[in-house]
Simulated scan of single mutants.
Amino acid sequence: MNGNTLRKTPLLQVKNLKKYFNVNKKKLKAVDGITVDIYAGETLGLVGESGCGKSTVGRTMIRLHTPTEGEVLYKGVNLFSLSEREMMKMRRDIQIIFQDPYASLNPRMTVEEIIGEPFAIHGTLHGKKKRERIKELLNLVGLQSEHMNRFPHEFSGGQRQRIGIARALALEPRFIVCDEPISALDVSIQAQVVNLLKELQQKMGLTYLFIAHDLSMVKYISDRILVMYLGNMVELTDSAHLYDEPLHPYTKALLSAVPIPDPEIKRERIVLKGDVPSPIEPPSGCVFRTRCPEAMDICARVKPTWQEVKLDHYTACHLYE
């Protein structure tokens, strides 16, 4: 997709989003100040190590978690200021595909009941029309109408995720949070699901937040990529630039671990020392400094500023100040 086209229309604007959890009378800072625009028709990839807050960002954005601070504007409307009834109407436009396709499907419901549940909740379709729409959705995600009367345990992991995708598409949303939708699947199935998501995006004009830790898959599906570490943003740019010229030391380390299919190409592996610090007591200054191979004295004292280092290439690192 053309970069200039993406820049015209922010569908979703996330402003200083924070989500803290209370743990033993202390604050666990799962998300600590995320600010990003998501443009109509694009896929924004969100990557980082397990436990960095990626899924919490996606769930808090759409109010599955109650935010601690910040705003999320969808078409200019602040989702966090809406009543439950108003938010219910907004959920027709905003949906989520969950990580575990088995845990997210009710084992006691048939496929017809699972995909038809959004229609029942919102009162949009009934009877024969609802049944016909469910058949259409099954065909759309590569399943058959005869699957309607089966239960989730009768399907493979990839098929179950397709059911979850069909449910997310039922109300014809514009924005979908894809919360690690391929991490629970076999590698052979992952590419099928990602290709399906790309096809659906083109057919239906969808906008995605695609959360994952598989950087090669994120590059394939994403227009831009936001890198997170310990609840904080560290880098944001379009996917090609991020892979060709990463700026932040954390991004460089992540990319150095991505396998290259060409044995002739040698890449130096950057191994980060130590463990990820606790989000309950994050390091002072730059949260990455305790593991950063390029850390300086200032990194312990001052939190780096989020800034545009190159055109449409943002990072938070003292190396570029």
Rank of each mutant, 00 (worst) to 15 (best):
L138I: 08
E112S: 14
R85W: 00
D223N: 15
L105E: 03
C292F: 02
G123F: 03
Y39H: 15
L311S: 14
M1D: 03
F155N: 02
S83P: 07
R91H: 11
I182P: 02
F155Q: 10
V234R: 00
L255F: 07
L206V: 11
I62Y: 06
I165R: 06
I121Y: 09
Y220A: 04
V234E: 09
D312P: 00
A240G: 00
V234W: 06
I94C: 09
H147E: 08
V309F: 03
S81D: 14
I165F: 09
I176L: 11
A30C: 10
L12N: 01
G274F: 08
P246W: 01
L138M: 08
I298P: 02
L171S: 10
T9V: 11
K198H: 13
I270Y: 02
S216C: 05
L247Y: 06
I114E: 07
G127K: 08
S55W: 01
C292K: 02
E42P: 11
L254K: 02
L79N: 12
E113G: 00
V141H: 09
V258T: 01
K310D: 12
V111F: 09
C292P: 10
V47L: 01
R267G: 03
V177M: 09
P246R: 04
S156T: 12
G3H: 14
E71P: 01
N78T: 02
Q192F: 12
L196C: 07
R85K: 15
L169K: 10
I94W: 12
R160G: 09
I165T: 08
T68K: 02
R150S: 13
S188M: 13
G157I: 10
D32M: 09
K219W: 03
P279Y: 05
L236Q: 03
D32F: 10
C286H: 03
E199C: 00
S145T: 14
L137V: 07
A295W: 12
M148P: 11
N195L: 12
L17P: 00
L185W: 02
K29L: 09
G76S: 10
I97A: 09
G157Y: 06
S50P: 01
I115V: 14
K128D: 13
M88E: 15
G285Q: 11
L82A: 13
K18V: 13
K27C: 00
L28W: 03
L64H: 06
D275E: 14
A168F: 08
K27N: 14
D262C: 10
I134P: 01
I221E: 06
S239N: 04
V177Y: 04
E321P: 00
E86Y: 00
G58T: 04
F155D: 02
N149C: 00
D179E: 08
M61C: 10
